[in-house]
Simulated scan of single mutants.
Amino acid sequence: MTRRNRDRDAEREAIRAAATRLLAGTPFRSAAGKLTGTELIVEGGLRRDIVYGDHKDLVDEFKARASAQNFTPQVAQRMAEDNAALRDALAKSKEQLAAERERVRALVRATAELPLELAQAREELEAAQQVTRLPGALG
């Protein structure tokens, strides 16, 4: 079994580049763009055991820089804005759905009542068309 020699300098450079991208809010691999150790590992494209085993100092440095930063990365900000917009759209959709359901209930009630009203109108029309003859009419 042969072990592949790792280039620790290249790994450190990948972690530093990932940290820089995350702190700038321009990640390549990270979907969330959060300033966490997990996102650093995802962004760096390395395995967790390698990062925490041999390069823990870079993770600690990244976490310190992230906590010192007093702004939200652009990706996280965009996600928060998208989330708020989607929540608003969902609330509006729920209101529209509730209004449509109420309209459907009203239409169902009207549809149930129409045959009854039609039968009643036919009976009234039939009764009005019956003419009774008076006895002793001229004829």
Rank of each mutant, 00 (worst) to 15 (best):
A10W: 07
K56P: 01
D60W: 15
Q69A: 14
A19T: 05
G33F: 08
D7V: 07
E102A: 00
T38L: 09
N70W: 12
H55M: 11
R6E: 00
A128Q: 06
V104I: 10
Q96Y: 10
E117W: 11
A64M: 09
N70A: 12
E61T: 15
K63Y: 06
A19C: 11
A89I: 06
P135E: 05
P115W: 11
A128Y: 07
Q77D: 07
R4L: 10
A68N: 04
A127P: 04
L23F: 00
L114A: 08
Q130M: 10
N5M: 07
K94M: 07
A121D: 01
V75M: 13
R87E: 05
A85F: 12
G33H: 01
G33V: 07
F62G: 03
K63Q: 02
T20W: 15
R29N: 01
A14G: 00
D9P: 01
R133N: 08
A19D: 06
G37Q: 11
Q77Y: 15
L125C: 12
L138Q: 08
L46G: 06
A99F: 00
L118S: 03
D82N: 06
T2V: 14
T111E: 05
F28K: 09
T38G: 00
E95H: 02
L134Y: 08
G37L: 03
P135N: 11
A19Q: 08
A137W: 11
A10T: 03
L40V: 12
V108Q: 04
A24V: 12
E43G: 02
V51P: 01
P73S: 15
L138H: 10
D9E: 04
I50P: 01
E117F: 05
A121I: 15
G139P: 06
N5I: 10
A119P: 02
A80D: 00
T26K: 07
E11W: 10
I15M: 05
K56D: 03
R12M: 05
R29T: 05
A84F: 09
M1Y: 06
G136K: 08
H55P: 02
A137D: 01
E11N: 05
Q69P: 14
A119H: 05
L134F: 07
M1A: 08
D60I: 08
G25V: 12
R78Y: 08
A18I: 02
R122Q: 04
A66C: 06
N5L: 11
L97E: 03
L97W: 01
P73A: 13
E117A: 09
E61P: 13
S93M: 09
G139Y: 12
L22K: 04
R12A: 07
A76C: 13
T20N: 12
F71M: 10
R8K: 08
E43I: 15
P27Y: 15
V131K: 13
D57K: 13
R4V: 11
V42A: 03
R3P: 03
Y52L: 10
D7I: 02
G139M: 12
K63W: 10
D82S: 09
D7K: 00
V75C: 08
V75H: 09
T38R: 01
Q74I: 15
E13P: 00
Q74P: 09
V108R: 04
F71W: 14
R29W: 13
E124R: 02
A127G: 00
T38N: 03
G45P: 08
K34Q: 05
L118I: 14
L35P: 11
K92I: 07
D82M: 12
L40K: 02
A110K: 10
E95Y: 06
L22W: 04
L90S: 04
D49V: 11
V131S: 00
A127C: 05
A32D: 00
